[in-house]
Design a protein around this nucleic acid. Structure first.
Lengths: 339, 339
DNA sequence: GTTAGCACTCAACGTTGATGAGTGCTAACA
DNA sequence: TGTTAGCACTCATCAACGTTGAGTGCTAAC
């Protein structure tokens, strides 16, 4: 028994219908809504074959058919209509990114927000840790009162700042002199090295101890943060709009999964390729057998990260893939513009 | 008929029990769990009186009693056990704030996170717009490539930055020279004034146009952001843990309310006083009749903001109030430390 | 190979009756 | 006069049961 053209058309119709309605689809529905050109009885015969081949599941004997993971896989690999990429316009992405150049964190936040809005699903971004970022610039900016803003910029364009207290004698010029000295001394070194170097400085005395310890603390914090993968999630509760999660316990399980960073990171670790689609059982995770994950990798400067979507297995793959590829491409370009 | 001591004790027991279990409480339950010293029949008589006085509601005739908004109001105003402030330790807040001085935005984010964690409810912060903030410092920090980070600090300690492109000839010293010039020219002026001044500069020519337009854009963006109230929300889906929201539609209504900024701002606009409690119907909002809002005001520098909690009317008011007052006090102190 | 017809299955829904938690009332008691 | 035991009554909850209708699989005819 082979998958001839008619079987494929029927399978496609079933998937389209089920993705739209979330109701198991029966033979009559197909003849009415899709133009296959045969009677329900014939469709039934074909559906029976498709079930035998593992492309369809039957919740119970007198219900319609539901696409299996295998069916979605086939759909994504071969059947998916590329028309679907036209169901939204690239310009929509402009609304989010606008004209402005952005720091990486802001760009990621914007992208995740855009993806969540455009797909009405849960959007996730993962930035893998970069344990050996190097310091590019270090600058102290005067603030009201006896404090200053310490800004550290790394070679990959990551920016962090913190407020530190300084002696009130230090005006803008004095702070710049310190910034210049520190930048000269520390630029090109990794965040970890910097911590040791500062300890050495400090023990030698002379410099403003509060500034040194402020720099040390921020460098330490950055090193800690940088060596961990960072995750951002948006639109988690979109899941409540999907009837397959109308069971509160399922919804809670999903939400708690999405909140647990390390589980999420494992889920989002892409098996390679610019766009990866993992469907239900392929994820190999007990609690997630009826969810799918689609993700796209992007690069922003030296950083390579992942943007993705988590949702029910019944998701509009074509649309999701086109949104993800557009947004991730735009992220990559965005960085090129900044350069 | 008057509220004698025994009636108050019974009412208190009912509230405590209902807050804990979410199940309408009957006369036997009270005699078993609370030491009132009379029989169920007597309790029933008292409950009947309390119902007549409007402190208790009855979902249906053969169910137990449920505290009314009026009861919670009485509880908060007079009955609440101040012991409840001891059910958590102030030190718990340390875990969140640590030792570090923070920018206001970070401090607010931390506070909201802490409140949400400690109360297991939805925490919200509102910072009212400050349309006439003045520029304190303006600084350009070198970044990798042909770009620079533009940092603007206002007199109230708000920091914003953005990446702008600059000519590659500009090194750290050159950027500092520009920063110094711009700071001297613009410090003390409001964000709006600055926009006009920069237009004047730009038309005179000479300075790096890209820098000027970058500053102008960021100032414009800050002015726009600053004149709007800003809101942050954490723990919105905590609501799913409360059985009164096990109806998916109610949960969705709540979540959509919490997501709509302007509705949220209206909800959180505190009627004054350091801590305000608005109970159910007192909110005067149709969809929120079985929710309560507790909020506390804080000041961080010149900014006066609101931290609050939104949850079911059945919430542990004592605990919530103590968490809010501790965290808001700590926020205020935090700023004093930075100064 | 396709289709009409028909028996069969089973979730969903509404009905019914039993159960039990809880009340309100009354009468007796301290 | 306040408190309590007893009892009839109410009503949500739950399980059991029959009905309905969507949908299938099989068979026989085209």
């Amino acid at each position: 028994m082979t998958l001839d053209d008619r079987k494929l058309r029927i399978l496609c119709a079933i998937i389209d219908d089920y993705v739209e309605t979330a109701v198991p689809v029966g033979s009559r529905t197909i003849t009415k809504r899709y133009d296959i050109g045969v009677s329900p009885a014939t469709i039934r015969n074909e559906m029976s074959d498709l079930t035998e081949l593992g492309y369809l599941d039957q919740p119970h004997v007198s219900a319609g058919r539901v696409p299996s993971g295998k069916a979605y896989r086939l759909y994504v690999d071969r059947l998916m209509d590329s028309r679907s990429s036209q169901d939204w316009r690239d310009d929509d992405a402009d609304r989010y990114f606008g004209e402005k150049a952005l720091q990486m964190e802001d760009a990621v936040k914007t992208a995740v927000q855009a993806i969540s809005d455009l797909t009405r699903l849960t959007a996730v971004a993962v930035l893998p840790g970069q344990p050996d970022m190097r310091i590019e610039t270090l600058q102290l900016v005067p603030m009201p009162g006896d404090s200053a803003l310490l800004v550290i910029v790394t070679d990959s364009g990551i920016v962090r700042d913190t407020v530190i207290r300084v002696s009130s004698r230090l005006d803008m010029d004095a702070l710049y002199a310190i910034s210049r000295m520190l930048t000269e001394g520390l630029a090109g070194h990794t965040l970890r090295e910097v911590q040791d170097m500062l300890d050495a400085y400090a023990s030698r005395g002379g410099a403003d101890q509060r500034v040194l310890s402020g720099v040390r603390d921020l460098a330490a914090q950055m090193a800690r943060q940088a060596s961990e993968d960072s995750v951002s999630v948006e639109g988690a509760h979109n899941i409540l709009n999907y009837p397959e999660f109308s069971d509160l316990n399922k919804a809670r399980a999903f939400l708690s999964m999405v909140e647990t960073q390390d589980r999420l990171i494992r889920l989002m670790s892409t098996p390679g390729g610019p766009i990866s689609v993992q469907i239900g059982p392929e994820l190999g995770i007990q609690e997630m057998t009826d969810c799918s994950v689609v993700n796209a990798s992007f690069t922003y400067g030296g950083c390579r990260g992942t943007l993705g979507v988590i949702g029910p297995m019944r998701m509009p793959y074509g649309h999701v893939i086109s949104v993800l590829s557009t947004i991730s491409r735009r992220m990559t370009n965005l960085f090129a513009e900044v350069r």
